[in-house]
């Protein structure tokens, strides 16, 4: 037991570990990454290998699964697997675009408010709070309805949908980034930067943003997940992009044609499953990144934990022995 206290023979080696290794990625991280990669492969590579197109009528209304069409057909007679690939792809595009827009806006507004402070902060946060107070889904529905009524083809598609979602879901990111930015703004290195004559935007970019980077990455992952869900919600209500496949649109048509009562499980279960996997994987990724970035949440491997516990127990025993030895004479 005493050898555990001696300098570990592998310590010099530890210094040589790769940077990636030292990030201490947990199994959670790897599980979520594998799920995300699988979904992405299915969406982006799958349709190159799959023989049927997503806009190709191969059967009739809700044909049952057959060896050729392993998930049958939807209400338009399209192959569900082909449709699912196109839908997943569009939903991922939507999530990435909308999530990036929302994160960019949120970080921009939050960091400005938090760093500059004063009336400017009050003003920006006032606007943010007002936007937060309005239920996002109501705003989304109203904008979607009016966009679908126009003749702007560009906005009616999946890109328009992403823009709408991106421009309405930044407020909570802005609020939390502001809180972090205002704490960073009081640190000494900011004063040093100011004294050395750096410009405000330079400070924001080089001296404030890096301290928030871990949070921003996690917020982005969450924004991507919630954008995918928001699009699905709208599409399921029938307010989705016109003439484009997406997971929500698939669910909309499945519901409209009573897939549940018709026992056509292949029409509504696959998109539901893909949606669940995507949002689960993204949320899981977010929580595993949290562990990577926040040392307090960091958990070691099980055997290391056991060793550490033994080490602490041994130290306590020795302390007790020392005290006993002191008291004894």
């Amino acid at each position: 037991m005493s050898d555990t206290l001696a300098p570990a023979p592998d310590q010099p080696k530890a210094a040589g570990r790769s940077a990636l290794r030292s990030l201490n990625f947990t199994p959670r991280f790897w599980v979520s990454i594998v799920l995300i990669v699988l979904v992405a492969l299915f969406a982006f590579v799958g349709d190159m290998l799959y023989p049927y197109g997503s806009n190709q009528r191969v059967g009739s209304l809700f044909d049952e699964p057959t060896p050729q069409h392993i998930l049958g057909t939807d209400n338009f007679g399209y192959d569900v697997v082909a449709l699912l690939m196109a839908s997943t792809r569009n939903s991922l595009y939507n999530g990435l675009l909308a999530g990036t827009i929302a994160t960019f806006l949120g970080v921009f507004i939050g960091i400005l408010a938090g760093y500059i402070g004063g009336w400017f902060e009050e003003f920006l946060m006032g606007v943010t709070n007002i936007v937060l107070a309005i239920p996002a889904i109501v705003v989304l529905i109203l904008i979607s309805v009016s966009i679908q009524g126009t003749n702007l083809q560009f906005l009616k598609g999946i890109i328009g949908m992403s823009l709408v979602i991106g421009f309405t879901s930044w407020p909570w990111t802005a609020r939390s980034v502001r809180a972090q930015a205002s704490s960073v703004a009081t640190r000494e290195h900011i004063d040093v930067a100011k004294l050395s004559g750096a410009r405000t935007f330079g400070i924001l970019l080089r001296d404030v943003l890096p301290y928030l980077a871990s949070y921003v990455v996690m917020a982005w992952v969450l924004q991507v997940a919630s954008a995918i869900l928001a699009e699905s919600t709208l599409s399921m209500l029938g307010l989705g992009p016109s003439g484009t496949a997406s997971l929500g649109v698939e669910l909309h048509w499945a519901l409209a044609f009573n897939a549940v009562a018709n026992r056509a499980w292949w029409a509504f279960l696959p998109p539901t499953a893909v949606l669940t996997i995507i949002s689960f994987a993204l949320l899981y990724l977010q929580s595993s990144l949290d562990e990577v970035f926040n040392p307090r949440l960091r958990r070691g491997k099980k055997k290391n934990l056991a060793k550490a516990a033994e080490r602490r127990a041994e130290a306590a025993r020795r302390l007790a022995a020392e005290i006993e030895a002191e008291v004894a004479p």
């Binding site: 009528r57 009739s60 209304l61 209400n75 338009f76 007679g77």
Partner: peptide, 13 residues
């Protein structure tokens, strides 16, 4: 217009 598709799918035949 693909009338057969409308009849088969939208109108369930």
């Amino acid at each position: 217009i693909d009338y057969a598709a409308i009849s088969d799918t939208a109108m369930s035949g």
